[in-house]
């Protein structure tokens, strides 16, 4: 929201997809895509275009509009069409300065390939998992990239570029019902539908639970195997330390922290 961050001439396109709630499986605004829109709205409220390739009737797209968008452009496509050719054709014409996407979609293949394929198709550099666009000067952007465990890396990239937005980016603003229901979903038929034929051969099912790998004891003798199998599993029942010197108890805590690998 800082005015110095805003850039009047900057043109940003945020690509949005239909999300999926992990609990209910219901369509919603995808969390990372919403962060991309939020980032774009903060940076260039004027030069922002929110773009979706797919079904213009999808209700969950309105949830993006509820963030305060006047319009949302939809490249009309069937559900089995590949979004990338349509998007890259459209973006080749539009030539925005920054293209923002989520890291991975919440529905469909969610391979996370979209930004890379677009980058390859448009010949633009791709930056992964950005948390913030700090500033833009001399045709280059200063970015913060999200690393695991809350760490950040500073990067500098020349415009134009493609960037995928990490969950660590600023949380998206609330989606309000009024603007959402009134926004204009500009549907555009760009006259190309590349069917995703590879995908047609796939079969999709709800995720099965994956067994966690147990600590396998490579035992040389039957007795060792027996011992390993009957050993009391460490999970049940907590250990309680009391009436001991504080240093000893703290050491026990510390050892557990070390064992869990949370200490750096």
């Amino acid at each position: 929201m800082q005015p110095d961050k805003q850039n009047a001439s900057l043109r940003i396109t945020a690509l949005v997809s239909v999300g999926k709630h992990p609990g209910s499986g219901r369509a919603r605004r995808a969390e990372q895509d919403a962060r991309a829109v939020e980032m774009a709205m903060t940076l260039a409220p004027e030069g922002l275009e929110v773009l979706h390739a797919g079904d213009p009737q999808a209700d969950s797209l309105r949830a993006y509009a509820g963030m305060g968008l006047k319009r949302l452009r939809v490249l009309q496509q069937g559900t089995n069409a590949d979004a990338v050719p349509a998007l890259s054709q459209y973006l080749k014409q539009q030539k925005p300065d920054i293209i923002l996407t989520g890291v991975r979609a919440e529905s469909g293949e969610s391979s996370g390939m979209t930004p890379y394929l677009l980058g390859e198709a448009l010949g633009l550099p791709v930056v992964t998992r950005i948390a913030e666009i700090v500033s833009i000067d001399h045709g280059e952007a200063n970015l913060l990239q999200a690393l695991p465990r809350g760490q950040r890396r500073a990067l500098r990239v020349p415009l134009p570029f493609v960037a995928s937005v990490d969950m660590a980016a600023a949380a998206p603003r609330q989606s309000a019902f009024g603007p959402a229901s009134r926004a204009d979903l500009e549907s555009q038929d760009i006259g190309m539908a590349v069917m995703d034929e590879v995908k047609a051969a796939w079969s999709e099912a709800p995720a099965r639970k994956r067994p966690k790998r147990l600590k396998v004891v490579k035992a040389k003798t039957a007795a060792d195997r027996f011992k390993a199998a009957t050993a009391k599993s460490s999970g049940d029942g907590g250990k309680v330390l009391r009436d001991k010197p504080a240093s000893e108890m703290a050491q026990a805590v510390f050892d557990l922290l070390l064992e869990e690998g949370v200490l750096r």
Binding site: M67, R173, Q174, A176, G178
Partner: peptide, 15 residues
Amino acid sequence: TLEKGNTPNKGAEVL
């Protein structure tokens, strides 16, 4: 809430 999208604190998340 409906026009501004300004429900404070955990409100947005709850909705």
